[in-house]
Amino acid sequence: MADLKPAEVEKAKLHFGIYDFEGINKVDAVRLGDLIRSLDLRPTNAAIEKAGGTKKKGEKLLTLEEFLPIYSELKKNKDVGAYEDLVEGLKVYDKNENGTMMEAEMAHTLLSLGEKLENAEVEEIIKACGGTTDEDGYMKYETFVKNILAGPYPEEAAAQ
């Protein structure tokens, strides 16, 4: 891939190998989103589906040669939220204009906007990324956004 650096290709090969559960040099397309996200990208489920991801196991298998152009294309995709955009959107819920919002409003927002999440997923996200909640049920939304954008392993992102 002309637009992927050699280090990116090597990292993609390593991650591809991890998701090759059967050891056949192919990855089930149902795992495409997981594979792409393991490479520090944050595409939507719709973008993954458009790129060739499937909803059912066994429908389609991808080789590394098929995967690298998909990775390259999704890497170019800028359709992910930036920190400033997300914070600006959450200011709507900042009734006290002090950088906080009700935890319940955050949960409602996560449940009702964007891609469909389950209650248990929302609770887990808020617990992992929300920081502390004060006695009135308010949380700092900037902390939440920073933690979300840091990804599941922020210490790895900081080391890169």
Rank of each mutant, 00 (worst) to 15 (best):
E88V: 01
E10T: 08
A158L: 12
E8R: 06
K57V: 10
D3C: 05
L113G: 02
G53N: 05
K146W: 00
E121S: 03
A159Q: 11
L74G: 05
E103D: 04
L86P: 00
V87K: 03
Y93M: 12
D79E: 15
G151K: 09
D134L: 03
H15V: 14
V80H: 14
T143M: 06
D20I: 04
A47L: 08
L62H: 02
K95F: 07
E8F: 10
K55A: 10
T143V: 13
V122M: 08
G114K: 03
G23S: 07
A12G: 09
Y19H: 12
I48L: 11
A158D: 11
E118G: 10
P152M: 13
L110Y: 06
L41S: 03
V122H: 08
N77S: 15
K116V: 13
E121G: 01
A82R: 14
K55D: 05
G114Y: 03
I24L: 11
E142C: 11
T44L: 10
N119M: 13
A2K: 11
F16K: 00
A82G: 12
T133W: 01
A2F: 07
L14C: 07
E97G: 02
A120W: 10
Y153R: 12
L62A: 02
A7I: 13
V9W: 05
K50L: 13
G89E: 03
I48C: 12
K60L: 11
Y141K: 12
G81C: 07
L41Y: 06
M106I: 09
D134Y: 05
P43D: 06
A7Q: 11
L41C: 06
D20Q: 06
E121R: 02
D136T: 11
T133I: 13
E123Y: 04
K140V: 11
N25D: 14
A159I: 05
I24P: 01
M139F: 04
G81I: 10
L113C: 15
A29H: 01
F67N: 00
T44I: 02
L41D: 02
A128K: 14
D3A: 10
A158T: 12
A157T: 14
A150R: 08
I70C: 09
Y71A: 09
V27D: 00
A7K: 12
L14K: 14
L39C: 09
T63Q: 07
L41W: 05
V145T: 04
E121P: 05
K56N: 15
